[in-house]
Computed example of a mutant assay.
Amino acid sequence: MDAKAWLQRRQVAVYAVGVALAVGVGVGRPAVAPAVEELIDPVLALLLYVTFLEVPFVRLRRAFRNRRFMAGALGTNFLVVPVVVWLLTRPLPNRPALLVGAFMVLLTPCVDYVITFTDLAGGDAEQVTAATPALLLAQLVALPAYLWLFVGPTVASAIEPRPFVEAFLLIIALPLALAWLTEAWAERSRRGASWQTAMGWLPVPMLAVTLFVVIASQLTRVQDSIGQIAAVVPVYVAFLVVMPLVARSVGARLDLPVAERRALVFTSVTRNSLVVLPLALALPAAYQLAPAVVVTQTLVELAGMVTLTRVVPRWLVPEPDR
């Protein structure tokens, strides 16, 4: 068995090791957190580069033209999810920083490790990958609008658009362009083909490294404010329970194939905590609690994803009886 196959079969264990190491560093060496935080953007960009390389662009273009799935992904994430989030957050205390952190992460669909977890559950990872640019552009427009609607214009005006634009260009557009250039190089050069093959075993370890960097850099914030942010944990858990059921219903109404229904479930429930975190860190000092609220969602979601990779293919969206 080659390294890539070995890693794919044991990827959940690899991610668990990354999280465990991050907790160890965050607790034992909190002084290194600022230095580790500087690695978030480059590590995330590299993760997406090797992830995009996994899907040939010929198939990616074909997947992007799947109008039913794209309509389902955009409609569920930007019409249904805001209603669900609004209802779930009604019991939360009226603390702007707490609410902003929760809204920022829950209103933004994931564009990175959702691809991995979709694949683990037997979903159509190509469709999720194809939807990534559209989902990120849509949240760039929708997030300020929903923050204005949910918490008022004063809070919404504190959200700078520049970090979101930079996140799109550096974390999504640049890796996507480099992956396309790499595929073109691999088609014309043996050296390019060797490079692409070598990159093929990196998605799993790079996701583990990304989780390590995010959690190790932010764990101190979570520990210092656990009493204030504990209230959002039930909201995050409820979201993990409600949205898979909603997405399954939407997929059935759109009459999507099984693999696409599973993909719709994961793109509807997995949130964009890794990309949103730099935006939360850029908020004014009055919202310094927001990054800890975002990272708390990451910790809750990872446990939920491990569960959903088993629940979705076995019970929620199983293969039809033959």
Rank of each mutant, 00 (worst) to 15 (best):
L274I: 14
P153H: 03
F64Q: 13
R9Q: 15
Y146I: 01
L308I: 10
P175I: 07
A121P: 11
L143N: 03
L302D: 14
Y287E: 12
W201C: 06
E183P: 00
L302C: 08
V55R: 02
R62S: 15
T76P: 04
E301D: 13
V250H: 11
V269Y: 01
V250D: 15
W201P: 05
V25I: 14
P320E: 11
R310K: 08
W195D: 09
V55L: 05
L87F: 12
L181S: 14
A73K: 01
L169C: 14
V317F: 01
L60F: 04
Y49T: 01
L47P: 00
V83A: 14
A184S: 12
S194K: 04
A35D: 13
P257N: 05
P91S: 07
Q218C: 04
V165S: 09
F52S: 00
A282T: 10
L99Q: 13
L240N: 05
A22E: 00
V276K: 00
V80H: 13
E187H: 13
L120E: 12
M104G: 04
V155L: 11
A35E: 14
G227T: 06
F164H: 10
T182C: 11
L219I: 06
E126Y: 09
A280P: 02
L87N: 06
P34S: 04
V204R: 00
A230C: 01
A121C: 05
P284N: 03
L170W: 14
P234A: 01
L21P: 15
E319C: 02
L60K: 03
G26D: 15
M70C: 08
A179K: 05
V128S: 08
